[in-house]
Amino acid sequence: MGTGTVDSRAAGSGGAPREIRRAVVTGGAGFVGSHLCDRLRDSGASVVCVDNFLTGSAENVAHLASDPGFELLEHDVTEPFDVEGPVDAVFHLASPASPHDYARHPLATLKAGAHGTLHALELAGRKNACFLLASTSEVYGDPLVHPQVESYWGNVNPIGPRSQYDEAKRFAEALTATHRAHLGFDTTIVRLFNTYGPRMRPRDGRAVPTFVTQALAGREITVAGDGRQTRSLCYVDDTVAGILAAARSGHPGPVNIGNPAELSILELADRVRELCGSSAPTVFVPRPGDDPDLRRPDITRAVSELGWAPVVDLDKGLTATIDWFAARQES
């Protein structure tokens, strides 16, 4: 690992760089969180990973276990917690994030958005650290504005089958913005769109791992509804780069972090099948309730304010993801 620091920009500092020598990542053993831990360590920042392994996995950070710049704290952030020593940044990613997970753990999801966000903010306040909330495109619900811009308030069913996740993140955004406006906290909010890549769990219910594992096993590929609903997939390396760009900028957000290259679920299934060399047929299954019709981020703000845009194209990202899943099947 290097010995440098990751720079951020402190709120109200007039753009002066803020060094991040030590960061806390809640949900750091999860899919995106573990990649963020890697990138922070590669940049030379020490990392405290906080996770209760409800949906994360110790395997995702096992390669960091012997790294003296990495600490693992097994803890549920819905309960108060503290970290010894100085902290320069708190990245709050802890939450179930897939439809299967938040359907199985609805109360834990709501608590992660409410109590977990509050406790992470309180830690940032005690440490005089910058705070980044990883929110989601799900705050837009089933959007009536396309592509989705940050000024759009969304079309969300507050008591529907996805509400525990949608409303948890919307509340987390309100809590974060309130701490900034009324308590002077240094905060930023990023809204992540459909991140995919290595370390996704094969049965988490999201389209990419579902299609990849089915195609590799030669099983029928199950497409929900007629498959015409769209998504915009962002490879995990690009997502993490966007998160760090937001932390560096000090922009309060919200900022969309995603890839504006939109495709239908049926097109995704066909592309995965082709890249896997599979001849498995497509089977159409019932579509989940409140499943959004459209997803595409407007990333104008990310480009202009953060200097960030995704660089990994779909085939390259899917190939890397397929190779990772294939290697796990063979081991």
Rank of each mutant, 00 (worst) to 15 (best):
R301E: 07
D293L: 10
G289D: 14
C276P: 01
S279Q: 12
T300S: 13
D293Y: 14
L268H: 09
I265W: 01
R271N: 09
P281C: 14
D298H: 07
G289V: 06
R287C: 15
S279H: 12
R271S: 11
P288R: 04
P286R: 04
P281L: 10
L275C: 08
R295W: 03
D293K: 08
A269V: 07
P281F: 10
D270W: 00
R271A: 09
P292G: 05
R287G: 14
R273F: 07
G277L: 01
D270V: 01
P281H: 13
L266V: 10
D270Y: 02
D290S: 11
T282W: 09
D290G: 07
P297H: 01
A280W: 05
G277Y: 05
R287M: 14
P297N: 02
S278W: 02
L268Q: 10
L268C: 09
P281I: 09
A280E: 06
G277I: 03
T300V: 01
D290L: 03
R296P: 03
F284N: 03
L294D: 09
V285D: 08
I299F: 00
R271C: 12
D291T: 04
P286L: 06
D293M: 12
T300H: 05
E267I: 02
I265T: 11
R296N: 08
P292F: 02
R273T: 08
S278M: 01
S278D: 08
S279K: 07
G277H: 02
D298T: 08
L275I: 04
P297F: 03
I265S: 09
E267N: 08
V272R: 00
A280Q: 05
S279N: 14
R273Y: 11
A269D: 12
L268A: 11
E274Y: 10
